[in-house]
Design a protein around this nucleic acid. Sequence first.
RNA 1: AGGACCAUAGCUCAGUUGGUUAGAGCGCUACCUUGACAUGGUAGAGGUCGCCAGUUCGAAUCUGGCUGGUCCUACCA
Length: 922
Amino acid sequence: MDKTFKPAEIEKRWYAHWEESGYFAPSGSGDPYCIMIPPPNVTGSLHMGHGFQQTLMDALIRYHRMQGNDTLWQVGTDHAGIATQMVVERQLEAEGRDRHELGRQAFIERIWQWKSESGGNITRQLRRLGTSPDWSRERFTMDDGLSRAVQEVFIRLYREGLIYRGQRLVNWDPELHTAISDLEVIAEEEQGHLWHFRYPLSDGSGHLTVATTRPETMLGDAAVAVHPEDERYAHLVGRTIELPLVGRQIPIVADDYVDRDFGTGCVKITPAHDFNDYALGQRHDLPLINILNADATLSDEAPEFYRGLDRFTARERVVEDLDQLGLLEKVEDHTLKVPRGDRSGVIIEPWLTPQWYVDAKKLAGPAIAAVENGDISFVPRQWENTYFAWMRDIQDWCISRQLWWGHRIPAWYDAQGNVYVGADEAAVRAEHGLDDTLPLHRDEDVLDTWFSSALWTFSTLGWPEDTPELARYHPTSVLVTGFDIIFFWVARMIMMTLHFRGEVPFRTVYVTGLVRDSEGQKMSKSKGNVLDPVDLIDGIDLEDLVSKRTAGMMQPRLAAKIEKATRKQYPEGISAYGTDALRFTYCSLASTGRDIKFDLGRIEGYRNFCNKIWNAARYVLMNTEGEDCGQDASAPVSYHLVDRWIRSRLQDTVGEVHRALGNYRFDLAAQLLYDFIWNEYCDWYLELSKVALRDGAEDEAALRGTRQTLVQVLENVLRLLHPFMPFITEEVWQAVAPLAGASGRTIMLQAYPQVDRARVDTAASAELEWIKAIVLGVRNIRGEMNVAPGKTVDVLLRNGTENDNKRLQDNRTFLMQLAKLGSIRFLEADEAVPAAATALAGDLEILVPLAGLIDRDAELARLARELGRIEGEVKRLRGKLDNPGFVAKAPADVVEREREKLAAQEQAQARLEAQHETLKNM
RNA sequence: AGGACCAUAGCUCAGUUGGUUAGAGCGCUACCUUGACAUGGUAGAGGUCGCCAGUUCGAAUCUGGCUGGUCCUACCA
């Protein structure tokens, strides 16, 4: 084995081997355990959030696979309608063409082609993370089976009256020329203005002043509204206004939607271009005057002068023109929330078009109940509140998109506008008895991407066919996802699955936090702070990183800024940490209910941890390969104290890891394993084993016992660690397993360690603590008193019991070696106490004679410091025990424990005081 | 406007039903190339647990308020 762990070659080799060997497929036996991957965008690339979630899913999958479950991880990708279409449209744009020139058919073919070129990217990246989904079952939301499921669901919901077509205001993206759902609109505060306009009363008796953030919409005004109880305007209600620039007579209406205290208390009402105004318009029977075209230029409904102008140009004109007429009263700076499309980034227009909707309210009922009654639970629980809040106020879901890439809506229209929904045109004709000569044309629109995603848990398993997989793996076990798609995806999956399967899609929703950069900023391309998980695995030099982060930047200034920041933060680029270190980092940061700040310091630490494991394995192999490790059961084996101790500690660790994983506490599991391996197995056991192997050379059975313990504990640890660090554990396991008496082709399919109560050995633990206390006591003196590391020291023990004496005889060589002693013995009863530094191990006093090694005054100071600490502790404990309330009301065992603590501290205090006194007088 | 979450060592975070000497990693200090590992070892410094009340024998932990931060939902033209 190499001296340092080199992950790159190992990862490649093992992943290929696992996949070729079919180890990722379900075993077919055991209790089913199933996770559905949240399907990433097929043409997308892996980001840190993916890396995080995939790692957690894979850890769960590998854990359950090793636990003997029939484990299915269903993998697949999403066609991501808008996102993918946009990418290809940009490509066309670069060629100076557009999709309309190409035509629908050719454009769709072009996207399929792009998918076939780039679609492997994301799955390749998933493989680099070491994920173990059943690749043979990979699905795509637009493959035949899933498309059939989508069609079936649409038709059935339509027939049940749960899908309908309606004309109403939608969120219209003037850039993409499509409707989008409420969830796809991001409203953020921006600086704008509030314009105050005078609207003259028709009878010439004066004017009203209205305030607006969108002057151009006044061309579509249908009324002015005031509050019904607003005395200032009560006399005007029912009268009319002559709308400037347009000349239309519009009414003044009263509606309690109006906030009297905002602006002038008069609101211009544009029912066709504002959601609130639309609702108000419905109440007052106002006309809808649509002044915008699909691209947000002014339509023919606007006065001729403005037609064809862009909405923002029209805004300037309207303001100018009103100013000219003396109707612009004032302009104020104003902060307002601006709705933008989450994909295009342009300002969304409420726009009147016919669209398809899902009646979400009816589907929401059972979906709410499923969480209320515990059929589905969220981890952490507080997300249930978020879910309920949204579901109880759910709005109908606009599912049609004016795109070409996606599942085309299975609806046909005749010349009269009658709608026929069915699987295909022939089916529609047959069902409705339509003559072949009657012209029908198919709906041009496609479905929202999330419509097909909502069916993911059952469509991937073969629905609407009644497949064995559906029966076996559905409902699935757990969904691992981010909170950002609880509404987009999780809620809709629950609704659809309950409706069509009559069962929940999953029992548990594990909601992960967001991965942020080391400053807590959201990672985004435009901020230039994104990290590619693969770059953390393979490393990347500075120049490549800079060019990657600044590629495709529209604004050169932004690019320069990003370049500067990147050069400052990563002057050496990013080194290669390997997949295992990355995965372990993700796990260790995965506290529930908290976003994670990704800090390179952590991954570096865990890279070092990999190296530690690697080197521990090297040591173990050096001492066991070619040696008798007790594989032959007939040879006698005896276990030394240190062997019994580490085996016992292993059991504790195994139990706690199971508990942590049962609660989705990946961070605790990672911490437990790190601590056991580094601080117990390596720091203590391996060091102790060196002594045992060298000084026990005459006892073959004991040697066998220690060698066997070395390899067996390591072998157990590797299995414990495998769900988190699949590669290094496999590589090392292959070498270690035969020596540990384990066999099998891969660690992946070995059993996960279980607690063996018989191996819990509290006596061994106690004795080892005794050894550690003495070693640490001496080391502390050595360290603080600056005793040269090469120098041995002599130690005298005082005030020991019979048991201490026996322990000393049994463990002398361990103490000698680990504390680097020249000698150690008990002080004779009549022996004079030499000037010495002192440490305590319980009642036992450890004396290190100064003997020219240690400075007396320094030791006095050290003792004084220690005494100060103990004094404080004694004072605190006395105060507590002197409090009658405590003694009377606290549970007896708590009081007893405090008494014992006090006694121990007082004892220690007395000892050290005596020693301090003695030393001072020497 | 309503709601959620967060505030613990210089940094990133643990701390399970109230009872620990409040922990870990990184960073820092001193010493050490000792035969698994300098991606290492040994020892050490560092915290009035955001602030103020309250409940309690006892609060980092429970309750209320405040301050600061993150986010979600809805939205006033």
